[in-house]
């Protein structure tokens, strides 16, 4: 996209994030208004929600990034003598995979047992972070599971559903 002689591109991830925040705020405002339009209910929520939406509007221009600026930065970073760093894409995939693993982990705790879930999550995290030696993965994940289960059992009064430990 061209504007005033400069090439701009849209930061898709940022657009999605701001849209989700805006949608959540609008939903919350309507939900609160649906409960009651009494001042005692909306005194703080309504003005803060409108203020937040105004901020969203002001953020919209920031969603467009100068395309030539990105190229410049990339050129500056490039150094053939330096060891090759993982590209952004690889890093982002690793982060997202770890995020997904965390999601599966929290929902699996009460389904497959805390011990198995911790073991699998620790192993998955090690894999995502680049560990490839099976013995290291199994030994360290098992150690994390044992220490975490017995440590937290000693610490808190709530029961933990476990399959083995």
């Amino acid at each position: 996209m061209r504007f005033r002689g400069n090439e701009y591109r849209v930061d898709g991830g940022h657009v999605l994030f701001v849209s989700l925040i805006a949608a959540a705020i609008i939903w919350y405002l309507f939900d609160a208004r649906g409960v009651s339009t009494s001042i005692n209910n909306l005194l703080l929520i309504q003005p803060v929600a409108i203020f937040a939406l105004a901020m969203v509007v002001l953020i919209i221009p920031q969603l467009f990034v100068r395309a030539d600026k990105v190229v410049e930065e990339k050129e500056e970073e490039y150094d053939p003598l330096a060891p090759k760093l993982p590209t952004d894409r690889v890093q982002v995939i690793k982060m997202l995979t770890l995020g997904a693993a965390l999601g599966v982990f929290v929902f699996a705790l009460n389904v497959i047992g805390f011990d198995i879930a911790i073991f699998l999550f620790a192993a998955a995290t090690m894999l995502v972070c680049g560990e490839r030696r099976p013995l290291h993965i199994i030994a360290f994940s098992a150690a994390v599971a044992v220490v975490a289960i017995y440590g937290f059992r000693a610490l808190m009064p709530y029961p933990m559903f476990t399959a083995i430990l």
Partner: peptide, 8 residues
């Protein structure tokens, strides 16, 4: 925006 979102 972050502050307002947090308050909400």
């Amino acid at each position: 925006l972050a502050a307002a979102f947090g308050v909400l």
